[in-house]
């Protein structure tokens, strides 16, 4: 698949309602600019993010995925993000083991007041993914025979 010069990645960010989503909102209120290819999906808690969501995102054409929640200790439901932390430590390693570039998946703790951290993280991830080019691994468009060569 040729990498076009103007490639703009699609990145989804699963943001917990109580911290990161509020942080992203604050970034907006403060007129901070972050790359528009980061698409925010609001979830009640980072613990809501099923690892299946990540796989499906890659399958449906995302080039990068972020999971963001409250800092450990600050979860609105007390313990949700402690489970998130374990779950994605394992999932991240499993994705890499299956050939997904580590730069394509990120988990971050961003609080409701860290608007700048949200902006910086979004910019950083978007830039990394842009460099990597479009994701072909796990993409549904690639049929069995084609994807053997498409494994860039």
């Amino acid at each position: 698949m040729p990498v076009e010069k103007s490639f703009e990645p699609a990145i989804v960010a699963f943001c917990c309602n109580w911290c990161t989503y509020t942080g992203a909102d604050l970034a907006g209120l403060n007129r901070m600019k972050y790359p528009e290819n980061v698409h925010v999906i609001r979830v009640p808690c980072s613990g809501r993010v099923n690892p299946q969501f990540i796989l499906r995102a890659f399958q449906k054409g995302c080039d990068g995925v972020m999971v963001c929640g409250c800092h450990p200790g600050d979860c609105h439901y007390s313990t949700g993000n402690y489970f998130t932390r374990r779950r994605f430590m394992i999932m991240k390693r499993l994705l890499e083991y299956n050939g997904i570039d580590p730069e394509r998946f990120h988990a971050r703790w961003i609080s409701g007041s860290e608007a700048a951290k949200f902006r910086d993280t979004a910019a950083e991830v978007s830039e990394h993914v842009k460099k990597l080019g479009p994701n072909v691994k796990y993409r549904e468009e690639f049929r069995i025979t084609e994807s053997a060569e498409a494994g860039t």
């Binding site: 299946q52 796989l55 499906r56 399958q59 499993l94 994705l95 796990y138 069995i144």
Partner: peptide, 26 residues
């Protein structure tokens, strides 16, 4: 539910494989 596609494609098969492993791995 849309969790798992039924197609016989590399993508759906791999997603089944990774998910199965994740569900039982620990």
């Amino acid at each position: 539910t849309g969790f798992q596609g039924k197609q016989h494609s590399r993508s759906d098969n791999q997603i089944f494989g990774v998910t199965r492993a994740f569900h039982v791995g620990d």
